[in-house]
Amino acid sequence: MKRPIRVVVAKAGLDGHDRGAKVVARALRDAGMEVIYTGVHQTPEQVVETALQEDADAIGLSLLSGAHNYIFPRVSELMKEKGLDDVLLFGGGIIPEADWPALARVGVEKVFPPGASLEEITTYVREAVPRKRGAAA
């Protein structure tokens, strides 16, 4: 039997806005995925370590503090160092669209803006995880 998709929903940096992250975590869980929510104030190192320990298929990073241009690339870099090439990295929060292309270039495959629906996010994760695994295999 195929095991359920495992997702680490993470709050990295000092930002404490966790409403969105928690709602998304809950929605992914209700959609049958296994969700590990890190809690707030994680370092990029801690996030990647959690993904490694939990054998995660995806990391969803939430950030509303404006530090995404530092934190997202840093997480991505650490994922590469740890060999997490088949793990999907996506994000959401207050992230200006102008920053999306640069984030995509460093491996943040999708950014969900405020107003994105839970349905949209769940569907994305369900489809993108197997695609990512396939691509890495």
């Binding site: 940096g13 370092t43 503090s65 241009n69 934190i71």
Partner: peptide, 11 residues
């Protein structure tokens, strides 16, 4: 502080 990286003066 290392945890302040990228956050100084942002919010």
């Amino acid at each position: 502080d290392p945890l302040s990286r990228g956050e100084v003066g942002r919010e």
